[in-house]
Protein backbone atom coordinates (compact mmCIF):
# COMPACT_ATOMS: atom_id res chain seq x y z
CA UNK A 1 0.00 0.00 0.00
CA UNK A 2 1.16 3.46 -0.75
CA UNK A 3 1.59 5.47 2.38
CA UNK A 4 -1.18 8.00 2.59
CA UNK A 5 -0.55 11.23 4.36
CA UNK A 6 -2.70 11.30 7.48
CA UNK A 7 -5.37 13.98 7.46
CA UNK A 8 -4.73 16.96 9.66
CA UNK A 9 -7.19 17.46 12.53
CA UNK A 10 -8.41 20.75 11.02
CA UNK A 11 -9.24 18.90 7.80
CA UNK A 12 -11.21 16.26 9.67
CA UNK A 13 -13.23 18.87 11.56
CA UNK A 14 -13.91 20.67 8.29
CA UNK A 15 -15.12 17.58 6.50
CA UNK A 16 -17.25 16.72 9.54
CA UNK A 17 -18.99 20.08 9.29
CA UNK A 18 -19.25 19.67 5.54
CA UNK A 19 -21.24 16.45 5.93
CA UNK A 20 -23.17 17.75 8.92
CA UNK A 21 -24.42 20.77 6.96
CA UNK A 22 -25.24 18.64 3.94
CA UNK A 23 -27.16 16.21 6.13
CA UNK A 24 -29.15 18.94 7.86
CA UNK A 25 -30.03 20.37 4.45
CA UNK A 26 -31.03 16.95 3.15
CA UNK A 27 -33.15 16.37 6.24
CA UNK A 28 -35.03 19.61 5.59
CA UNK A 29 -35.60 18.43 2.02
CA UNK A 30 -37.17 15.12 3.09
CA UNK A 31 -39.08 16.16 6.24
CA UNK A 32 -42.16 17.27 4.24
CA UNK A 33 -42.35 13.81 2.67
CA UNK A 34 -42.19 12.06 6.03
CA UNK A 35 -44.71 14.49 7.46
CA UNK A 36 -47.03 13.82 4.54
CA UNK A 37 -46.80 10.04 4.87
CA UNK A 38 -47.10 10.00 8.66
CA UNK A 39 -50.07 12.37 8.64
CA UNK A 40 -51.85 10.32 6.01
CA UNK A 41 -52.22 7.53 8.58
CA UNK A 42 -53.46 9.74 11.43
CA UNK A 43 -57.07 10.18 12.49
CA UNK A 44 -58.22 13.80 12.38
CA UNK A 45 -58.14 14.10 16.16
CA UNK A 46 -54.38 13.51 16.07
CA UNK A 47 -53.85 15.61 12.94
CA UNK A 48 -55.20 18.73 14.61
CA UNK A 49 -53.97 18.00 18.09
CA UNK A 50 -52.06 20.73 19.88
CA UNK A 51 -49.26 20.10 20.78
CA UNK A 52 -48.42 18.31 17.57
CA UNK A 53 -48.18 14.53 17.40
CA UNK A 54 -45.43 13.38 15.05
CA UNK A 55 -45.95 9.63 14.87
CA UNK A 56 -49.52 8.36 14.58
CA UNK A 57 -50.67 6.79 17.84
CA UNK A 58 -53.57 5.11 16.18
CA UNK A 59 -52.55 3.93 12.72
CA UNK A 60 -55.59 4.13 10.40
CA UNK A 61 -56.34 3.65 6.72
CA UNK A 62 -59.57 5.68 6.72
CA UNK A 63 -57.93 8.59 4.92
CA UNK A 64 -56.96 6.35 2.02
CA UNK A 65 -60.39 4.80 1.96
CA UNK A 66 -61.95 8.24 1.77
CA UNK A 67 -59.62 9.32 -1.05
CA UNK A 68 -60.37 6.27 -3.14
CA UNK A 69 -64.07 6.85 -2.62
CA UNK A 70 -64.03 10.59 -3.29
CA UNK A 71 -61.38 10.83 -6.01
CA UNK A 72 -60.76 8.64 -9.03
CA UNK A 73 -57.01 8.47 -8.51
CA UNK A 74 -56.42 5.72 -11.08
CA UNK A 75 -58.21 7.75 -13.71
CA UNK A 76 -56.19 10.87 -12.80
CA UNK A 77 -53.01 8.87 -13.19
CA UNK A 78 -54.01 7.69 -16.66
CA UNK A 79 -55.04 11.20 -17.67
CA UNK A 80 -51.82 12.76 -16.41
CA UNK A 81 -49.82 10.10 -18.23
CA UNK A 82 -51.72 10.68 -21.49
CA UNK A 83 -51.26 14.43 -21.07
CA UNK A 84 -47.54 14.23 -20.29
CA UNK A 85 -46.78 11.60 -22.93
CA UNK A 86 -48.76 13.48 -25.56
CA UNK A 87 -46.95 16.73 -24.86
CA UNK A 88 -43.56 15.00 -24.77
CA UNK A 89 -44.25 13.23 -28.07
CA UNK A 90 -45.32 16.37 -29.91
CA UNK A 91 -42.61 18.56 -28.41
CA UNK A 92 -39.97 16.00 -29.34
CA UNK A 93 -41.11 16.04 -32.96
CA UNK A 94 -41.55 19.80 -33.23
CA UNK A 95 -38.30 20.59 -31.43
CA UNK A 96 -36.15 18.22 -33.46
CA UNK A 97 -37.80 19.30 -36.70
CA UNK A 98 -37.41 22.99 -35.84
CA UNK A 99 -33.89 22.40 -34.57
CA UNK A 100 -32.97 20.70 -37.83
CA UNK A 101 -34.29 23.63 -39.86
CA UNK A 102 -32.36 26.22 -37.89
CA UNK A 103 -29.18 24.18 -37.57
CA UNK A 104 -28.85 22.73 -41.05
CA UNK A 105 -30.91 24.77 -43.53
CA UNK A 106 -29.86 27.99 -45.19
CA UNK A 107 -32.54 30.47 -46.16
CA UNK A 108 -33.26 34.16 -46.21
CA UNK A 109 -34.72 35.47 -42.99
CA UNK A 110 -33.47 32.50 -40.98
CA UNK A 111 -32.17 34.65 -38.13
CA UNK A 112 -35.30 36.75 -38.07
CA UNK A 113 -37.52 33.67 -37.83
CA UNK A 114 -35.30 32.27 -35.13
CA UNK A 115 -35.42 35.44 -33.05
CA UNK A 116 -39.20 35.64 -33.42
CA UNK A 117 -39.54 32.07 -32.20
CA UNK A 118 -37.08 32.59 -29.35
CA UNK A 119 -38.84 35.74 -28.20
CA UNK A 120 -41.89 33.65 -27.39
CA UNK A 121 -39.94 32.15 -24.48
CA UNK A 122 -40.41 35.40 -22.61
CA UNK A 123 -44.18 35.32 -22.92
CA UNK A 124 -45.84 34.33 -19.65
CA UNK A 125 -48.51 31.70 -20.14
CA UNK A 126 -51.11 33.99 -18.57
CA UNK A 127 -50.88 36.32 -21.56
CA UNK A 128 -51.99 33.60 -23.94
CA UNK A 129 -54.36 32.07 -21.46
CA UNK A 130 -57.61 33.91 -22.19
CA UNK A 131 -57.43 33.79 -26.02
CA UNK A 132 -56.41 30.13 -25.81
CA UNK A 133 -59.38 29.48 -23.59
CA UNK A 134 -61.76 31.22 -26.00
CA UNK A 135 -60.21 29.27 -28.87
CA UNK A 136 -60.68 25.95 -27.09
CA UNK A 137 -64.29 26.85 -26.36
CA UNK A 138 -64.85 27.77 -30.00
CA UNK A 139 -63.26 24.51 -31.20
CA UNK A 140 -65.31 22.56 -28.64
CA UNK A 141 -62.08 21.25 -27.17
CA UNK A 142 -62.94 22.04 -23.56
CA UNK A 143 -62.47 18.96 -21.40
CA UNK A 144 -60.70 16.98 -24.15
CA UNK A 145 -57.19 15.62 -24.53
CA UNK A 146 -56.55 17.64 -27.68
CA UNK A 147 -57.51 20.83 -25.87
CA UNK A 148 -55.14 19.89 -23.09
CA UNK A 149 -52.21 18.83 -25.24
CA UNK A 150 -52.15 20.74 -28.53
CA UNK A 151 -51.50 24.26 -27.21
CA UNK A 152 -48.23 22.92 -25.74
CA UNK A 153 -47.08 21.11 -28.90
CA UNK A 154 -44.43 23.61 -30.02
CA UNK A 155 -41.97 25.11 -27.55
CA UNK A 156 -39.33 27.66 -28.50
CA UNK A 157 -37.09 26.36 -25.75
CA UNK A 158 -37.10 22.86 -27.24
CA UNK A 159 -36.31 24.17 -30.72
CA UNK A 160 -33.48 26.28 -29.31
CA UNK A 161 -32.04 23.34 -27.41
CA UNK A 162 -32.13 20.97 -30.37
CA UNK A 163 -30.61 23.57 -32.67
CA UNK A 164 -27.71 24.07 -30.25
CA UNK A 165 -27.13 20.35 -30.20
CA UNK A 166 -27.54 19.76 -33.93
CA UNK A 167 -25.09 22.51 -34.84
CA UNK A 168 -22.41 20.20 -33.54
CA UNK A 169 -23.37 17.49 -36.03
CA UNK A 170 -21.01 17.83 -39.04
CA UNK A 171 -22.80 19.38 -42.00
CA UNK A 172 -20.89 17.03 -44.30
CA UNK A 173 -23.14 14.20 -43.11
CA UNK A 174 -26.22 16.11 -44.18
CA UNK A 175 -24.64 17.24 -47.45
CA UNK A 176 -23.58 13.70 -48.32
CA UNK A 177 -27.12 12.46 -47.80
CA UNK A 178 -28.46 15.31 -49.96
CA UNK A 179 -26.08 14.44 -52.79
CA UNK A 180 -27.31 10.87 -52.56
CA UNK A 181 -30.74 12.29 -53.27
CA UNK A 182 -32.26 11.76 -49.84
CA UNK A 183 -35.27 13.93 -49.09
CA UNK A 184 -35.18 16.33 -46.16
CA UNK A 185 -37.64 14.18 -44.22
CA UNK A 186 -35.41 11.20 -44.87
CA UNK A 187 -32.27 13.04 -43.70
CA UNK A 188 -34.11 14.22 -40.63
CA UNK A 189 -35.38 10.80 -39.69
CA UNK A 190 -32.43 8.59 -40.57
CA UNK A 191 -29.40 10.85 -40.19
CA UNK A 192 -30.26 13.52 -37.64
CA UNK A 193 -32.63 11.80 -35.22
CA UNK A 194 -30.41 8.78 -34.48
CA UNK A 195 -27.55 11.14 -33.60
CA UNK A 196 -29.74 13.10 -31.21
CA UNK A 197 -31.00 10.24 -29.09
CA UNK A 198 -29.38 11.33 -25.81
CA UNK A 199 -30.56 14.91 -26.05
CA UNK A 200 -34.03 13.80 -27.13
CA UNK A 201 -34.22 11.69 -24.00
CA UNK A 202 -33.15 14.65 -21.90
CA UNK A 203 -35.68 16.97 -23.50
CA UNK A 204 -38.42 14.38 -23.10
CA UNK A 205 -37.73 13.90 -19.40
CA UNK A 206 -37.64 17.64 -18.80
CA UNK A 207 -41.01 18.21 -20.46
CA UNK A 208 -42.42 15.14 -18.77
CA UNK A 209 -41.56 16.61 -15.35
CA UNK A 210 -42.95 20.01 -16.31
CA UNK A 211 -46.16 18.67 -17.78
CA UNK A 212 -46.69 16.33 -14.85
CA UNK A 213 -46.49 19.43 -12.65
CA UNK A 214 -48.64 21.60 -14.90
CA UNK A 215 -51.69 23.07 -13.18
CA UNK A 216 -52.95 26.35 -14.63
CA UNK A 217 -54.10 25.17 -18.04
CA UNK A 218 -55.58 21.80 -16.94
CA UNK A 219 -57.42 23.59 -14.11
CA UNK A 220 -59.07 25.91 -16.59
CA UNK A 221 -60.10 23.59 -19.39
CA UNK A 222 -60.90 20.39 -17.49
CA UNK A 223 -64.21 20.08 -15.75
CA UNK A 224 -65.40 16.49 -15.55
CA UNK A 225 -64.00 14.09 -12.98
CA UNK A 226 -63.15 11.61 -15.72
CA UNK A 227 -60.76 14.04 -17.47
CA UNK A 228 -58.93 15.46 -14.46
CA UNK A 229 -55.18 15.21 -14.06
CA UNK A 230 -53.53 14.49 -10.71
CA UNK A 231 -52.79 18.11 -9.73
CA UNK A 232 -56.34 19.20 -10.61
CA UNK A 233 -57.84 16.20 -8.86
CA UNK A 234 -56.01 16.63 -5.58
CA UNK A 235 -56.52 20.40 -5.74
CA UNK A 236 -60.25 19.71 -5.92
CA UNK A 237 -59.96 17.89 -2.59
CA UNK A 238 -57.80 20.62 -1.08
CA UNK A 239 -60.24 23.37 -2.10
CA UNK A 240 -63.04 21.63 -0.21
CA UNK A 241 -64.72 24.13 2.15
CA UNK A 242 -63.39 22.61 5.35
CA UNK A 243 -59.78 21.42 5.35
CA UNK A 244 -59.55 17.63 5.27
CA UNK A 245 -55.91 17.41 6.28
CA UNK A 246 -55.58 13.66 6.73
CA UNK A 247 -57.41 12.92 3.50
CA UNK A 248 -55.31 15.50 1.64
CA UNK A 249 -52.12 13.93 2.90
CA UNK A 250 -53.32 10.51 1.74
CA UNK A 251 -54.15 11.92 -1.70
CA UNK A 252 -50.79 13.69 -2.07
CA UNK A 253 -48.99 10.56 -0.92
CA UNK A 254 -50.73 8.54 -3.63
CA UNK A 255 -49.93 11.24 -6.18
CA UNK A 256 -46.31 11.75 -5.21
CA UNK A 257 -44.80 8.42 -4.19
CA UNK A 258 -44.90 6.56 -7.53
CA UNK A 259 -43.17 9.47 -9.27
CA UNK A 260 -40.47 9.42 -6.59
CA UNK A 261 -39.95 5.70 -7.13
CA UNK A 262 -39.61 6.25 -10.88
CA UNK A 263 -37.14 9.05 -10.22
CA UNK A 264 -35.02 6.95 -7.89
CA UNK A 265 -34.91 4.17 -10.49
CA UNK A 266 -33.86 6.49 -13.30
CA UNK A 267 -32.09 9.20 -11.35
CA UNK A 268 -29.22 9.54 -13.80
CA UNK A 269 -31.46 10.20 -16.77
CA UNK A 270 -33.58 12.68 -14.82
CA UNK A 271 -30.61 14.72 -13.76
CA UNK A 272 -29.06 14.55 -17.19
CA UNK A 273 -32.32 15.87 -18.58
CA UNK A 274 -32.09 18.96 -16.43
CA UNK A 275 -28.38 19.62 -16.81
CA UNK A 276 -28.25 19.27 -20.57
CA UNK A 277 -30.80 22.01 -20.84
CA UNK A 278 -29.03 24.36 -18.49
CA UNK A 279 -25.62 24.05 -20.02
CA UNK A 280 -26.39 24.60 -23.66
Amino acid sequence: MLSKKGKEPAEIVKSFFHYLLLSIGALIMVIPFFWMILSSFKPSSEILSIPMILFPRRFILDNYQFVFGFLDMGRYYINTLIYAMGVVFLITISSTWGGYIFAKQEFKGKNLFFIIILSSMMVPFMVRLLPLFLLTVRLRWVNTYQGLILPAAVEAFGIFLMRQFMQEIPSSLVDAARIDGASEVRIYSSVILPLCKPVIGALGILYFIWTWDSFYWPLIILSGNSMMTLPVGIAKLALHHSPLYGEEMAATTIAVIPMIVVFLLFQKSFIKGITLTGLK
Partner: peptide, 8 residues
Protein backbone atom coordinates in the same frame (compact mmCIF):
# COMPACT_ATOMS: atom_id res chain seq x y z
CA UNK B 1 -39.15 17.93 -4.56
CA UNK B 2 -38.68 18.58 -8.30
CA UNK B 3 -40.43 15.33 -9.20
CA UNK B 4 -43.42 16.10 -7.00
CA UNK B 5 -46.00 18.54 -8.27
CA UNK B 6 -46.30 22.10 -7.00
CA UNK B 7 -49.91 21.33 -6.13
CA UNK B 8 -48.95 18.40 -3.90
Amino acid sequence: PIVTSMVA
